[in-house]
Design a binder for these strands. Structure first.
Lengths: 218, 218
DNA sequence: TGATAATTTGACCGATTGGTAAACATTACA
DNA sequence: TGTAATGTTTACCAATCGGTCAAATTATCA
């Protein structure tokens, strides 16, 4: 008789690892496009190439699949911000943060869309994580930025809105990919698009954050 | 006997105007949160305070409701970009464009989320509009920005990515509202948040686009 | 007012939804 | 190899889905 997944206490089988990975891969495909409510287990099953009951053998509910995905994404998505180094050079730290976020949007667009979908729906499954770990990490890095500004290393600015603007501009290329493609057309297609975006954003943020000479009567 | 809505040729009744508005208002509530696939006619009917068949008397299908909403949003959403004036002063044009987009994100967050949902799903209902009217408008305004840059009025930059970055940063406050709230907490709550965002973005874009002195051996 | 058109709804339809039960197939391991 | 645990599938369930129909109700206007 099959033992329900939740009751298992032993170490995981090789098959379990493989199949769970296979299911999450398919679930990411589906959830990232249609969101939680708009996705069906049947869709995921078809993409995964397995029967629906088989999926439910590894994840007891649709919500469990979504949960597993969100947890994973939330963690890796914050990697670049964690790497933000208080001891580093402000300009190069910001530059490489932008580049890393942009690379993630390019290499993991489904993860970005999954997260965006969750936000659009009011974060019903992750509000606690937002108010807890996420807020704490952002608070910490915002303090770093504030210190830099006070030391005159970058222009005075609201660190929170700076972080928001880096998030939004970079993730835009994953979340609004259709729109970007439609507007740019075939002219700016391919790998060049990524470099163009990187160049623009680095210029915007670096120049926008340069310390301005004190204004006064000249 | 009731005449199917699509067959009507006469002018619309007062009741028709009111009820259609009432339905679209409810549909916006639901679609903007759950997306097209994730929303149900029953949900919309409940929010609208009408029976499901009554909704389907005014809009023959769920898709017709969504279509009507998207069309309306697509038009008004581009208003600020249309107002972008080639003859105006670059700095103040960009500044007021940012402010207008930010006001829309504040005053019409549901419309922003409806659009974002559609983009995340790959724009299955509006891809033609994106490649047609939207692209044309953006091309036109991008040309204006390029002209400004060539004339030395603003820094040289890719005009398309500039527009993208203004879109993403402003709409972020509507689409990712939960996240913004969670991170800022109660400290930066209320109306002040809007002003903080406006101040930051205007500073970022204005300073980031200032013409830089030509680099060379000093 | 009366009759005609416009509006509204309860009952219902087949298809799809998330999820279950139990039989069947495969694997791991003594 | 045998057998017990693990993995897989067919058949199925109640609930919900988008949408229809006909009957009932309300508004319009000659």
């Amino acid at each position: 008789m099959a033992i329900p997944r939740a009751a298992r206490t032993q170490r995981r089988t090789r098959i379990q690892e493989e199949k769970e990975e296979q299911i999450l891969e398919a679930a990411l495909d589906v959830f990232s496009v249609s969101g939680f409510r708009g996705s069906t287990i049947d869709q995921i099953a078809e993409v995964a190439g397995m029967s629906k009951p088989n999926l439910l053998y590894y994840f007891r509910t649709k919500e469990a699949m979504h949960r597993a995905l969100i947890d994973r994404v939330l963690f890796t998505w914050l990697e670049p911000l964690r790497a933000f180094d208080a001891e580093g050079n402000p300009e190069s730290e910001i530059r490489s943060y932008i580049r890393r976020k942009l690379e993630m949007a390019r290499d993991f667009p489904r993860e970005s869309r999954l997260f965006a979908n969750e936000m659009l729906q009011g974060a019903p499954h992750v509000e606690d994580e937002l108010k807890g770990p996420l807020k704490e990490l952002v608070d910490e890095k915002a303090e770093v930025i504030r210190t830099w500004a006070k030391a005159g290393k970058i222009a005075k600015c609201d660190p929170y809105h700076l972080i928001f603007s880096i998030w939004s501009t970079t993730q835009h290329y994953a979340d609004f990919d259709v729109q970007v493609r439609a507007v740019l057309g075939q002219d700016h297609a391919g790998a060049g698009r990524f470099e163009d975006a990187a160049r623009f954003l680095e210029q915007l943020f670096i120049d926008g954050l340069k310390v301005k000479p004190v204004q006064g009567v000249s």
